[in-house]
Simulated assay, not measured.
Amino acid sequence: MMTRRNLLQAGAALGVGSVVRSTASAQALKFQMSSGDVMKTKGLVDIAEKLPINETSGDKRYRPKFRMGLGGLAAGNGFNTVSNDEEILGMLNKAWDSGIRYFDTAPFYGLSLSERRYGDLLRNKKREDYVLSSKVGRILTPSSEPLEKKWHWANPSPFHYKYDYTAAGTRRSVEDSLHRIGVSSLDIVFIHDLSPQNSDMGEDWTKYFDQAVKGAMPELTKMREEGMIKAWGFGINTPHAIYKAVDVADPDICLLALQYSILDHQQALEKTFPLLDERDISVVVGAPLNGGFLAGRDRFNYSSKIPQPMRKKFTAIDSIAKKHGIDIKTAALQFAEAPSTVAAIVPGARTAQQVEENIASMKVQIPADFWRELKAANLIAEEAPTGTES
């Protein structure tokens, strides 16, 4: 299981974000932070505290050693934010230098842009020193014509895509990713975006699921048995595919985006996590900050339409966080990482400063009274793990 954070003493060493700041919260509450702004970490940061890891010796299934990772959507110019190669490489180097050793990406992120930028860092590192996951389900092909549907990408690479969950398409997708990144292997492969929430598919997602049952799922199982990958699962924004797949396949680990955060976690706790626990399947939490909302962005998940109940919940949690000398982003990251079902979290970042503050947030000791107050106010589920139970 995970290592537990050390209790801070009054004379604990202070580092980046360690001064109790009060300037960022007001700006965050106005939801006006731009893509380059950073919500400063509040609270005492123990710079000697290491990032959390999984003790994997007794696990039946593969779990990545590192519980704090980096999501690759922003590296693909996600949310229509333009970044240059130098900025992203600076961010990636900051992540590496700060101890991040789990990197998640996908062919779809910027239509190969994220994978290629990840390769600028990872191809120069020893392969055994880090964990790498990418995804299958879309085959990219070069094109001189831009995509009609822009999705979330600003200035993506000149590719089109088609869905392909066959065995041959799955193996080709993995090989294409290896070439783009410039590495010899992937540790984890996620079957990407099999969900009714995917507007390309809608209700037709079950047809693609059936294709994956005959193609991608047995092919990834074969690749795991051959030693080409260590684990496979699903990378999805809704749990529908997992609920269907556990009876017909043998996944190891699933990336759940938009499904477990301090704002929205009831279904995961009541249904998804217990179902996975029965089968020793672990979870990587994607978008633990709800697409940047919990870091002060004017968007919720992947939309500029922010539900009013989420605004109200943000304000209530933020107020209690300030009372206890911390910030809501710090609470959100540690909340997402706390459950035993969770093997890792992969918050995204575009700048080195964002990485720096996210890592600082993982080294803050959050008072147990903060979590008790959230539960008393029904702002988080009573049964939600917080890392303070033991």
Rank of each mutant, 00 (worst) to 15 (best):
P64T: 10
D247R: 06
Q308G: 02
H265K: 03
R350H: 05
R123K: 15
P385L: 02
A344D: 08
V189M: 04
N54P: 06
L194V: 06
D369P: 04
A332V: 00
M39V: 12
N54A: 02
I380E: 11
I229M: 03
L294H: 00
I253R: 05
K94H: 09
I317Y: 00
L111Q: 08
Y130L: 02
G69N: 08
A331K: 02
T351F: 07
K94T: 15
G90E: 13
Q9T: 12
A26T: 14
S133G: 14
A316W: 01
R299G: 00
K126S: 11
D204E: 14
R21W: 06
R123Q: 14
M2Q: 13
E383F: 01
G348L: 04
G76L: 06
P196H: 04
K149C: 03
A74R: 01
N198T: 11
T206F: 08
L379E: 11
L255E: 08
E383K: 14
K30H: 11
G286R: 10
A336L: 06
V213R: 11
Q334N: 09
G233I: 02
E148M: 09
V364Y: 07
K323R: 06
F79E: 05
S157P: 00
Y118G: 03
Y163T: 11
G71E: 11
T341C: 06
S319K: 13
A332I: 00
A168W: 00
P107W: 03
E219S: 11
M217Q: 03
P288T: 00
I326T: 15
P288K: 02
M217W: 05
S195K: 07
Q32W: 00
T221M: 14
T56R: 09
V45P: 14
L14R: 15
L132Q: 05
N54H: 02
V213M: 07
M362F: 14
S173F: 01
K94A: 14
L379D: 09
L258E: 13
M1I: 10
Q308K: 12
